[in-house]
Nucleic acid binder design. Structure first.
Length: 515
RNA sequence: GGCGGCGUAGCUCAGUGGUAGAGCAGGGGAAUCAUAAUCCCUUGGUCGGUGGUUCAAAUCCGCCCGCCGCUACCA
């Protein structure tokens, strides 16, 4: 065991979710991906801090609360609970859950604001533009439609008026060169490459200052010294990553985790994380996060998730029908991480049956049931190694490095692909060695074959824990692996000759469509 | 319009200069320990089109076609 003090730290975040709507598969996806990485890093000896939470301010919330006849705080309390419930339902291993309406966050925001003011990057100006009261939105000149009556209207035909309100601005324009240098010197700062290209093009095209306060609503963090202003989303929401660490107390124990190693975000908010956020941190004199990774979007049965189609997929019914771990597996396996992909019931069932039930579940079952029936229900010892034994074993031993490498490259789907290569090799090995034919002829060789299979199963079970924690805990129980010997460092010593194995039971039942 | 990405077997994708690959789907066979689960073999592609560079191009360059993303205050 490495002493905790010298373990490397790893800080990973999910986006904070806007509590205006209900959680759906897209939220679950980002969270599960972060969870897989967090769990893998723990397995690999890192001291991990994993943060998730909710974004709870803004005009939309204020209006929605009003429409629901609730105080904004009551409204967000209720909706934030739905996101907490989702986190529990998907077995998230987060170390904290921050809400932007918490005092610790608000006081941290105010401190950050003051720091930015002191740095001279905040000034009072006017935010102005074409505003449609009916749409509650600002529009750019080229979005407006000129009606036959000569009146300018919004794309949704609402009348617009030129409005001008006082607003504080952040001098984003002053950071263009430093941001470009950051991207240039840290090619991994924004991933995947498509997002990186877009961000660099955006910044090269020139940056305008951004409005960071509002006077048109009040549900937000008050701007210090200007009680008629509340902070607009940029400062408020992005700051969560440091306020949860104890900012502005730089001596807070959690501050040792800053800067974050990885901000996992949905691709729609990449710019805020890859442009605004590092600029603010530079201004505040804080270290910058190491990496921003934008994950893609799911379509559902080929259709884009949208309010008008009302097809946003909630996760609880899927968990109830298919089980959590199969769902987690599917989400991580079905589409290359960073791409978009389609969530279809058919594809989920196929992967559940073909890969989980047939390939892996059946592999574990045939090995463990065979040991229970023919090897006295105890972990068999090794025998003399054959060429085939050596091949399977070296495949298994090389797997942790391959998986680590894939996860470091954010190729979560590839990590699973690598693990499945071993699953298939193990199935081929058991067929070729045919322990059932050795039962009477050569019981010692039979035992040796079973042991090699257990060695492979151990590696598979350990490496799959981040993806399917509950089911892999069960598999490792079936191999009599002590709970303290389930990380990568313990792989060589996790199995003990002769340990009593519990009665085997299936890991992944086949899914059959109810008639 | 500008910038960027993609277009490879029926499907999802890997492959960035040297005789086209994986998984699934399809076809044939073997085995029977196992959740009828597995294993072996196999059908299938002029790598969007076209012109060029090269001894050699899916891989580099030009043009064309198609799809997608970004082009700031919409979480």
């Amino acid at each position: 065991m490495i002493p905790p003090r010298i373990r490397p730290r790893f800080y990973i975040t999910t986006p904070i979710y806007y509590v205006n709507g209900a959680p759906h598969i897209g939220h679950a996806y980002s969270s599960i991906a972060a969870d897989v990485i967090a769990r893998f890093k723990r397995l690999d000896g890192f001291e991990v801090f994993f943060l998730t939470g909710t974004d709870e301010h803004g005009q939309k919330i204020e209006k929605a609360a009003q429409a629901a006849g609730l105080e904004p705080q009551e409204f967000v309390d209720r909706n934030a609970n739905a996101f907490r419930a989702m986190a529990r339902a998907i077995n998230l291993s987060n170390d904290d859950f921050i809400r932007t309406t918490e005092m610790r966050h608000k006081s941290g925001c105010i401190a950050l604001w003051q720091k930015l003011e002191t740095a001279g990057v905040v000034y009072l100006g006017h935010y102005e533009g074409w505003y449609a009261t009916r749409d509650e939105a600002f529009y750019a000149e080229d979005e407006l439609v000129l009606g036959p009556d000569g009146i300018k209207r919004s794309p949704y035909s609402a009348p617009v008026e030129w409005v001008r309100e006082p607003s504080f601005f952040f001098k984003l324009s002053a950071f263009q060169d430093r941001l470009l240098a950051l991207y240039d010197q840290n090619p991994e700062f924004i991933q995947p490459a498509s997002s990186r290209n877009e961000i660099i093009a955006f910044v090269r095209a020139g940056l305008r200052d951004i409005s960071i306060s509002r006077t048109s609503f009040s549900w937000g963090v008050p701007v210090p010294g200007s009680p008629d202003h509340v902070m607009y989303v940029w400062v408020d929401a992005l700051a969560n990553y440091i306020t949860a660490m104890g900012y502005p107390d730089m001596e807070a124990p959690r501050m040792a985790f800053w800067p974050a190693n990885l901000h996992l975000v949905g691709k729609e908010i990449t710019r805020f994380h890859a442009v605004y956020w590092p600029a603010m941190l530079m201004a505040a004199g804080l270290p910058l996060p190491c990496r921003v990774f934008a994950n893609g979007w799911w379509t559902v049965e080929g259709e884009k998730m949208s309010k008008s189609l009302d097809n946003a997929l909630p996760v609880e019914p899927l968990i109830a029908e298919f089980g959590l771990d199969p769902l987690r597996y599917f989400l991580m396996r079905e589409m290359p991480f960073g791409n978009d992909g389609d969530f279809s019931r058919r594809a989920l069932i196929n992967r559940l049956n073909d890969e989980l039930a047939n390939d892996l579940g059946n592999l574990a079952q045939r090995i463990l049931a065979f040991i229970a029936k023919n090897a006295g229900g105890a972990l068999p010892p090794h025998g003399p190694m054959t060429e085939a034994d050596f091949l399977l074993l070296s495949h298994a031993r090389s797997l942790p490095d391959k998986v680590r490498d894939a996860i470091d490259r954010m190729a979560l789907h590839e990590a699973l692909d690598q693990i499945w290569k071993l699953v298939r090799s193990a199935n081929a090995y058991i067929d070729h060695q045919a322990p059932w034919a050795l039962r009477k002829a050569d019981p010692l060789r039979m035992a040796a074959v079973l042991r090699i299979l257990c060695d492979a199963l151990l590696v598979i079970g350990v490496l799959l824990q981040p993806f399917m924690p509950t089911t892999m805990a069960k598999l490792l129980d079936l191999l009599a692996v002590p709970p303290t010997a389930r990380d990568l460092a313990a792989l060589e010593s996790a199995l003990t000759d002769g340990s009593r194995l519990p009665a085997p039971s299936g890991l992944f039942p086949r899914f059959t469509e109810a008639a």
